[in-house]
Write a protein that binds this DNA or RNA. Sequence first.
DNA 1: AATTAAAGTTAGGCAAATCTAACTGTTTTG
DNA 2: CAAAACAGTTAGATTTGCCTAACTTTAATT
Lengths: 223, 223
Amino acid sequence: MKSGELSFTEENYLKAIYSLSERSVSFDTSTNEIAERLRTKPPTVSDMLKKLTAKKLIAYEKYKRVQLTKSGRQIAIQIVRKHRLWEVFLHSTLKFSWDEVHEVAEQLEHIHSEELITRLEKFLGYPKFDPHGDPIPSAEGELEDGKRINLSEVENGTNCQVVGVMDSSTPFLQYLEQIDIAIGTRLKVVGKIEFDGSMIIQIKKKPQFTVSKKFSENVMVTA
Amino acid sequence: MKSGELSFTEENYLKAIYSLSERSVSFDTSTNEIAERLRTKPPTVSDMLKKLTAKKLIAYEKYKRVQLTKSGRQIAIQIVRKHRLWEVFLHSTLKFSWDEVHEVAEQLEHIHSEELITRLEKFLGYPKFDPHGDPIPSAEGELEDGKRINLSEVENGTNCQVVGVMDSSTPFLQYLEQIDIAIGTRLKVVGKIEFDGSMIIQIKKKPQFTVSKKFSENVMVTA
DNA sequence: AATTAAAGTTAGGCAAATCTAACTGTTTTG
DNA sequence: CAAAACAGTTAGATTTGCCTAACTTTAATT
Ligand SMILES: [Mn+2]
Ligand SMILES: [Mn+2]
Ligand SMILES: [Mn+2]
Ligand SMILES: [Mn+2]
């Protein structure tokens, strides 16, 4: 790759560190978490953390947790932006189904061309969300933060709309499809079971059904 | 990359060997030619030739010239197919100008997904030529031999490539040379004059110029 | 507080892709 | 045909990304 450009691998590390950090209170993550996420081994991660530190993309000290620097975070967000725009393209333009887009976007997100993304975004009509309901960062790295909450936090008797998932694995997405839940689906929480946190929900006028706590924790909704 | 998949680099070598071989009578090429094409050094090429031989993608013996095997050729053609389809996408869909598309296509051609190309091709309406007028191989690797037609039959706005002449007289050939047209020259028909069948054509970014009907009837092109 | 468990790093090695310098094989040509 | 010129390969080094095994540091638990 051209000088100044990051390798596929470096980009994947930044993206992993970004998404793992975002879900922690202190906006940081650890060697082992990164290793698990990238299906690699801790020593490999250790090596890369040194390299990313040298490039000033992360703030990191031996044995301590890792945080993205401002510039590392900007780059990570741009990769997320590319990933999600490509997912929209694959779904809306090329008619891939939901659960097929991620793998290919994982490759496309590493194409280096500002102009390409600018034009792609325009062609797609400046979408704000990807096919899984996740927000698409702007060219400036701004992330619209909708008031998305976990389905598991929704009160009894409340209506809400599905806007995203925490888990993008094929089994989960297939289960969602099976029970007819997709991005945009409106549903009502009609009951909760204290014992195990299961939730009874209803879509439109269809029969009610029960989902596990694990399920409701992996679905994001807006109230 | 997944096992069985070729690396970026291997794919670029196959593509280079393919296009260099195609232009030779014996359908082969040499270490130095490849090195020059890929802006690398001969020892680097030597190494890769060994590797590609082991994978049975080329037929090669030390100090001899290189030829693609059947399977190597098929792979090379698929990369060319991807490259050209992406160029159409960049030009027709994203409105890149035709001289901007190549560099980005050079990256996109290495995305691994059959399904992606199948759907992209469908979305683009099964184009037969890329923005430079080069033919797009079919999914089966068939390369339209570009049926030779008379330049005078070419539609407005179409790119074509000069492949022969009807008249081989010295005056005609001298005229061709004078206006910088030779076998292989790519040109675009930018207008036609009803009155006398004259044709306005353009080569690359040079100024347009007009040729007579008698001229265009004596030039053979592939669409 | 001392011990154990876990998290994380070094050490050392390997494969891919690249380079320069030095060598060998092939071709051209006086 | 012998010498020079050219083409091509081998040797040895470097960088990146990855691994296992062994070690060190930090955290948790008794
Ligand atoms: Mn995704
Ligand atoms: Mn990726
Ligand atoms: Mn091209
Ligand atoms: Mn390429």
